[in-house]
Amino acid sequence: MPYSLPSFLVVSSLLFCLGMYTVLTRRNAIGVLMGIELVLNGAGLNFVAFSRFLEPSQTASLLSGQVFTLFIIAIAAAEVAVALAIVLSLYSRMKTIDVEEFKQLQG
């Protein structure tokens, strides 16, 4: 693939969709978490790619895209910490991390 914006966008779409597929089909809670990481990476890659290739504008620095990726990484770190804590806590309570078992919210 050539070194151009669409190639990056295709790669990030792949990351995003594979991540989404992972989230949808995994029964293992940690597997689901991994899928979320993929989705976030896809989004981050998108931001950076746009910040590299887009026409520079007077009003906003293109580096903003990179800053957003930074924020995504920070949020991912927070999310993983909390999510793993929840998973471990569920595991110690229910002796499983099978998301199909977690259905106490059922109506």
Binding site: N28, A76, V87, K95, T96
Partner: peptide
Amino acid sequence: ILILIIFGVMMTQRGKLLPLSI
């Protein structure tokens, strides 16, 4: 993050292995 996830994997794999996907 990844190290955390691998920790998580290791700490929750005791007992029976459950099918990974639906």
